[in-house]
Each structure stands twice: as structure tokens, then as C-alpha cells.
Amino acid sequence: MTPTRPRDLFGVALVAAVVVGILVRLSYGSLPEMPLGAGATLGVLGIAEAIGGNVMRARIRRKPGTQPVQPLVAARAVLLAKASSLAGAIMTGAWAGLLAHVLPLAGTVTAAGNDALAGGIGLVCSLGLVGGALWLEHCLRTPDDPRDDDPDDGPPVGDHP
């Protein structure tokens, strides 16, 4: 399994933004007003994944006072990180597509102003989910040699200058 590439997530977000932007443009008049905290859940998930990444990183590096990570737990966490980064990218695109339509109308249409605020919160929170997921995935990488992180240990055994 390869690490998630940010450019792939950007491509997914771009496609989602175009699709949602077209759908919103065609049906904005019949859509209900967006709740202000509609995207806040994504931000909470992003924070939880970032915290989880720090915990898993300490366990993988076998810091004192931590238990080793079971391989199945690590595999599930990687799956969660990959799925969350993709979902966050899709939602980032969706919020961007909504904002592309409502921001120009925000000064003249009250509902568009409220939707722009909700869209801004949603966009920031979905970017937080992508960031938290990428951090979790990064933290789950196993070090090649535990001594690689400690420059005072000297070169690994078997390396010759």
C-alpha cells in the first residue's frame, strides 16, 4: 500500500467542486438553508485523527509507558486514515463548489450570506479532516531502524563510512 498523495486528493476535490458547483447552480433556489455547523463534525473527526496519530506514533516508536501496536490495529488505522482523507477531499470540493456559487450572491441575498458562512466553516473543517487523516497515516509509518530518530546513537550497525 502506498502513502496517500496530496495531488490525488486535490484532483478528487477539484472534481467534486465542479460537480457540486453545477448542481448548486442548477438547484440553489429549491435547496434548504445550510445549517451553520453542518461541516463541524468533519473538524472534530480531523482533530480526533490527529490526536490518534500522535498516540499511535508513540506506540509504534515504543516510547516508555506505551504498549506496542498490534498489526491489525495499525492496518485498520491506516484504512481509516486513507478513507478519511478521501472523504475529506470530497467534502472540501463540495464546500468549495457551494462557496463558488454563494459568495458572489452573499452581498445581495440573505440566504446566500448565511450559506457562505456555513460553507466557510465546512471548508475549513473538511480541510482539517484531510490534514488529520494525512497526519495519522504519516504517524503509522514504521521506522526502518529505531535509532534513525536519535542522532546521538551514531550510525546503525552494519553501515560503513
Results as ranks from 00 to 15, higher is better:
A116T: 00
L123R: 05
T92F: 02
A16S: 15
N114E: 13
M1N: 08
P6N: 11
P32F: 09
P68N: 08
G46C: 02
G158S: 04
A77V: 07
C139E: 05
T41H: 09
A81Q: 01
D150S: 01
V157C: 04
P151D: 00
A48T: 04
G154Q: 07
I121F: 02
D159T: 14
L134M: 10
T110S: 13
T41Y: 11
N114Y: 08
L103T: 09
L9F: 03
N114C: 01
G119D: 04
R59D: 07
A17T: 10
Q67K: 14
A13E: 03
Y28V: 10
L45N: 04
S84Q: 06
G97F: 04
P6T: 14
T142M: 12
R62Y: 04
A106S: 12
A116L: 05
L14Y: 08
G119F: 02
N54A: 12
M1T: 08
G113P: 05
A106I: 02
A75Y: 08
G37D: 10
A87R: 06
A74H: 10
A13L: 09
P151E: 03
L129F: 06
I51Y: 09
A133Q: 01
L129K: 06
P32I: 11
T142A: 13
I90R: 00
G132V: 00
S30Q: 15
P3L: 12
G97V: 05
V44Y: 10
L72W: 14
V20F: 07
V102T: 08
N54R: 14
I22D: 12
A111Q: 13
L117P: 01
N54W: 09
G131K: 02
D145N: 13
A50K: 00
T92G: 03
A81E: 00
R57V: 04
P156Q: 04
A133G: 02
G154H: 01
R147T: 11
G93H: 03
P151S: 03
T41A: 13
M91L: 15
P6E: 12
G119Y: 03
G21D: 03
R61E: 12
L42N: 06
P3A: 13
Q70F: 14
P161W: 08
G43K: 02
S126C: 09
L127A: 10
L134S: 04
P146G: 03
V73W: 09
I60T: 07
L31T: 11
L79A: 15
P71K: 03
